[in-house]
Nucleic acid binder design. Sequence first.
DNA 1: ATGCCTCCCCGAGGGAGA
Length: 259
Amino acid sequence: MKIATFNINGVKARFETLTGWLAEASPDVVLLQEIKSTDDSFPRAEIEDLGYSVATHGQKGFNGVAILSKLPLEDISCGLPGDDDDPQARWIEATVVGTRAVRLCCLYLPNGNPAPGPKYDYKLAWMDRLRARAAELIAAEDVALMAGDYNVIPQPEDAARPEAWEKDALFLPETRAAFRRIVNLGFTEAFRAVEPGPGHYSFWDYQRGAWDRNDGIRIDHFLLTPQCADLMRGCWIESALRGREKPSDHVPVWVEIDA
DNA sequence: ATGCCTCCCCGAGGGAGA
């Protein structure tokens, strides 16, 4: 089973980018972030016509997450637990059953800038809620993963110019510590399990020719429970998509698992 | 760098992103 996470930066603005990629890359599961669409305005029928089941958790204007799957999506749940008053659509989870059941959690973690400030407070509070849900997944001992746009640069080698991010909410020590606390519950950060070296990024800013200068950061991650990590066959970043026509500022990150 | 692009809201110009 090949699973990709992809911050699409607007599903309507990027419709041809998305559908062309689906037809060509043929992922079994896609975890989408920043659909910037309500559930009603998501191009559900067009994507179903390509052979996918669709589950969305959208909102008007920004944020929004979705799961696409060639297998039926079961037990869909929207919204990260822990704050019923949080209006931002950043979390959706569902189960697919291939040769075994896989719990899929799709997340769009808050950016948090400027830091310090209320947006950074929201980011850290959201990460606390994420840790609570993550602990439940570990305790369940199921095949499960949490993937998406974490808006976290875990280590200096995950940025082309780490010095430029020192005061940024994506790279502040408190952000990185909160990310580590989650990973240290027992998750495998899939990409780092297979590729320890520098120079691998998943986001390049539209401005200042960041792609042409390879001035990127790695902020889209897969966290696998131990039972899921046992099944991992590979993990890679599809960076070439950033150089295509009308790209998102993020590229897909892939995991293949034996399931 | 104090966001130089690009999205969304709508139908001008501002918020948000990272």
